[in-house]
Design a protein around this nucleic acid. Structure first.
Length: 520
DNA sequence: TTGTATT
């Protein structure tokens, strides 16, 4: 049994056969059939479709020979590119050469769109996929047609999938599983040409792999048999087996990721109706109220603003979803008396148009009093612990708002200037030790962005991730938030752990260290 | 109920 290195790609190996020593194909002239010498199959080591070739198509307009009647091609037929063809050979001249490998569905010599000039290459599709493979094995780089200096090229056209139609992405593997383990798992379903476990720079498995079968059908049968069929030890969900992304899909996904990253930071452009701007406005407005109060000469109990701050967060209306009542409750060793502890949802601030409906008083201050629904005055006594806690939370807000010194007093409805630059490395999802939070009991509707927005007030969020159930595409109601510093994480825990949203209370705690979750 | 990944 072959040994596998960590990065080795396993391929199907064909026994090598000696190369027949027969002469090159000779054409006696235009229109003449090739010599009747039988072409032998010449297996070569390079397996379809790993060979690349520059695109030959610019400005050409293919002319098809008339397809024969009853020449239906296979579903999985391969369109071949034929290169290094003498320019005096037309379809009828080439046909005999290729027919010996099977019935031809279509053969097209490429010609210049305007001049009609023969471009020295062609497209060829056999009715049967197998014929194409045979022709490629027999001819590609094996023969040189008369008058040419380079051997004939016979290989899948660039327009053909590069193997994605039989290449599988395998997810939710155990990170201990090797190429060989994966190979064994997929072996029963067909001939495996490649099997690669994805690994990080440190050589550790990313818990996923690519497996390439020799045919689409085999790949499909592996999906049917294995997808969701089992859960690997230590994996958080059942095995994922699906066709790998095509290049196009990969590009689209990358773009979507970009939008996800930039969108939340440039809400005016990407998410005009999102929570972000209204939420930020609320925060800034809060800040404005504080400043106004300070300048107004009366002392402001420092604990009051954080409390109202959090209550205003209760007015969050994420992406126009139905408003959910959010109430800070626990997470405070001694909850403030004027904040709901009764278990009855207390809030609150009316929501109009996704948040900007915070009531305002003629003096321009937010009507923060509206959040106190238990009959206590807004600035009533609070325990020192609660004060500390909320102050910490508020520190995060201050850090946040400090990014926009010039916009602190921005009135509602005005566009945010320069959003903060939050750098997120795609591959680095975790922050430093002590900066990563695990959040449970998230609202069903929350996605990555909503989660991030909820925690932005406490610092720079470098990553947020809500877990989704792949089968239902529903949130699993838990996720992660990573900050760039532990203080922000602590502030977020203090303020948001126990935060009531609807009937649930958030659980916000430091993410468990990696080794703590290992079952073995 | 603890990072869901695409060479």
């Amino acid at each position: 049994m072959a040994r596998f290195t960590q990065t080795e790609t396993r391929r199907q190996h064909h026994p090598q056969q000696p190369q027949p020593a027969h002469s090159s194909l000779v054409f006696t002239g235009p229109g003449a059939p090739p010599t009747q010498q039988p072409l032998l199959l010449i297996p070569h080591q390079r397996q379809y479709p790993q060979i690349t070739f520059p695109k030959p198509m610019n400005g050409s307009e293919p002319i098809s020979i008339h397809p024969e009647s009853g020449n239906m091609k296979d579903q999985d037929a391969i369109k071949l590119f034929i290169g290094q063809i003498p320019r005096n050979l037309e379809e009828k001249d080439l046909k005999p050469l290729f027919e010996q490998f099977g019935k031809i569905h279509e053969l097209t010599v490429l010609k210049d769109r305007y001049t009609g000039m023969h471009k020295g290459c062609a497209f060829l599709t056999y009715c049967a996929r197998e014929s194409a493979i045979k022709a490629q094995n027999a001819l590609h780089e094996q023969k040189t047609l008369p008058g040419m200096t380079r051997p004939i090229q016979v290989k899948p056209a660039d327009s053909e999938s590069r193997g994605e139609d039989r290449k599988l992405f395998v997810g939710m593997l155990n990170k201990q599983q090797t190429e060989e383990d994966v190979y064994r798992l997929f072996e029963p379903y067909g001939v495996i040409e490649e099997c690669t476990v994805l690994r990080g720079p440190d050589g550790n498995s990313k818990g996923c792999a690519f497996v390439k079968f020799s045919t689409h059908t085999e790949a499909q049968s592996a999906i049917s048999a294995l997808h969701g069929s089992q859960t690997m030890p230590g994996a958080s969900s059942s095995l994922v087996v699906k066709f790998a992304d095509t290049d196009k899909e990969r590009t689209i996904r990358r773009m979507q990721q970009m939008v996800g990253q930039f969108g939340i930071f440039n809400p005016a452009i990407a998410l005009p109706f999102s929570t972000y701007s209204s939420y930020a406005h609320a925060l800034m407005q809060q800040q404005a109220a504080i400043m106004a109060a300070s300048h107004g000469g009366y002392l402001t109990p420092s604990v009051a603003f954080p409390a109202t701050q959090i209550h205003q967060m209760g007015a969050l209306n994420i992406n126009s979803l139905p408003p959910t009542t959010m109430t800070p409750v626990s997470g405070l060793s001694s909850p403030p008396a004027n904040i709901t502890t009764s278990g009855v949802p207390s809030i609150v601030t009316p929501i109009v148009n996704g948040f900007t409906g915070i009531p305002h008083q003629p003096n321009g201050h937010p009507a923060v009093e509206t959040v106190y629904t238990n009959g206590l005055p807004p600035y009533s006594t609070q325990s020192p612990t609660a004060a500390d806690t909320l102050q910490q939370a508020f520190t995060g807000v201050q850090q946040y708002t400090a990014i926009y010194p010039a916009t602190t007093l921005t009135p509602i409805g005005q566009t945010l200037p320069q959003p903060p630059q939050v750098i997120q490395q795609q591959q680095q999802r975790e922050g430093p030790e002590g900066c990563n939070l695990f959040i449970y009991h998230l609202p069903q509707e929350f996605g990555d962005n909503e989660l991030m927005q909820m925690f932005l007030p406490f610092g720079t969020v470098i990553s947020s991730k809500v877990f989704m159930d792949r089968a239902t595409n529903q949130s699993k109601c838990f996720g992660f938030v990573s900050f760039d510093n532990p203080a922000s994480a602590q502030a977020a825990i203090q303020a948001m752990n126990g935060f009531q949203i609807g009937m649930k209370r958030l659980k916000v705690q430091l993410k468990r260290p990696k080794d703590a979750s290992r079952p073995y």
